[in-house]
């Protein structure tokens, strides 16, 4: 029985990791006030580019870099449209998803059916991997999972305890005020939208190089959208995003194992849970906003025009 729960929790971390990368990226972009609904498209382009480069070079690390670069470029397009040209963020983001889905399918056509030459394999962290219970769950994963253990506290510290992090939050909260104290709103937004793209690319690479090593059209299967929901669920906080990613990942892991045990819970019901959680959190967070507590960045989704004030 214990080993089964360990297996479920191990699978939870694996299933949660792509969601976590994508959500961390979206936290950064949304904290800067730019909503990017193009995660699904960026993840797909990242997964495709990462897989392609890995197949050609045999180096998963080069694949990861390519994935992040390709998705970062797409994010740059989004930044140019929404920050540079002040286009509608929702429309641009949706366009990015549709474009990314098509582009990755088109460019990836020749890679369907090719096995991955090299992948990110799981390995035990010396010492930590031997711990009872925690060891197999957290410390017998692959390198990309370990990276998130560093990334989450790093982003948390950056956001709340450094000046650039404070500037970032200011730009998303009240761009006019940020502008008035000399923060360059446009540059800040460009930087964090692209950073969000880089992380979405890493999420895609995790799918095509570690989780299910292969390239198939549309292989993200909606995970980009779950990541968007996750950001709201996490109330734009990286640590809560991690908890949320594992919660949502856990639902994935649980679905099949409960069935294998003969427990009859309709899997549609479990699949619906992440969204129910998100709606519940939205209700709670909206109440908190009314009570003047923390919630969504104040200027989220709004374009900023210095002369438009």
């Amino acid at each position: 029985m214990e080993s089964m729960w360990i297996a479920i929790l191990t699978a939870t971390v694996t299933a949660g990791t792509p969601l976590l990368y994508a959500a961390l990226g979206e936290v950064l972009a949304q904290r800067a006030g730019v909503m990017n609904l193009g995660i699904e498209g960026m993840m797909l382009v990242g997964a495709m580019a990462g897989f392609g480069v890995t197949v050609r070079t045999g180096q998963p690390w080069l694949g990861l870099v390519a994935a992040m670069g390709a998705a970062g470029l797409l994010a740059l397009v989004h930044a140019f449209l929404t920050v540079g040209l002040r286009a509608n963020q929702v429309v641009s983001g949706l366009a990015l998803t549709i474009f990314g889905t098509g582009l990755s399918g088109y460019l990836g056509k020749s890679m369907v059916g090719i096995p991955a030459k090299a992948t990110f394999k799981t390995w035990a962290l010396p010492g930590l991997g031997d711990l009872p219970v925690v060891g197999p769950i957290l410390f017998r994963q692959d390198t990309l999972v370990y990276l998130t253990y560093l990334l989450v506290p790093a982003i948390w510290f950056f956001l709340y305890h450094t000046r650039p992090g404070m500037n970032l939050r200011a730009v998303g909260e009240n761009p006019a005020a940020a502008d008035a104290v000399g923060i360059n709103v446009s540059v800040t937004r460009y930087v964090y939208v692209v950073a969000g793209g880089l992380l979405a690319g890493a999420a895609g690479a995790y799918l095509s190089l570690a989780y299910a090593p292969s390239w198939l059209e549309n292989m993200t299967a909606g995970r980009g959208w779950i990541a968007v929901a996750l950001v709201i669920f996490a109330m734009w906080d990286p640590v809560r995003a991690m908890a949320g990613a594992y919660l949502f990942g856990g639902v994935d892991a649980l679905t099949f194992r409960l069935q294998a045990l003969g427990v009859v819970i309709p899997s549609f019901f479990l699949k619906m849970l992440p969204y129910v959680f998100t709606i519940a959190v939205l209700i709670v967070s909206t109440r908190e906003t009314i009570l003047r507590k923390s919630a969504a960045p104040g200027a989220l989704g709004l374009t900023y025009d210095r002369e438009g004030r």
Binding site: A7, L207, A221, D252, F256, R257, S267
Partner: peptide, 23 residues
């Protein structure tokens, strides 16, 4: 036997396969 309720989700279907192997 487990249901995935998908035709096309490589990661979820792999996960379902893993759950059966664990069982």
């Amino acid at each position: 036997l487990v249901w995935t309720n998908t035709w096309y989700d490589p990661a979820a279907e792999k996960e379902a396969g893993k759950s059966l192997l664990e069982a």
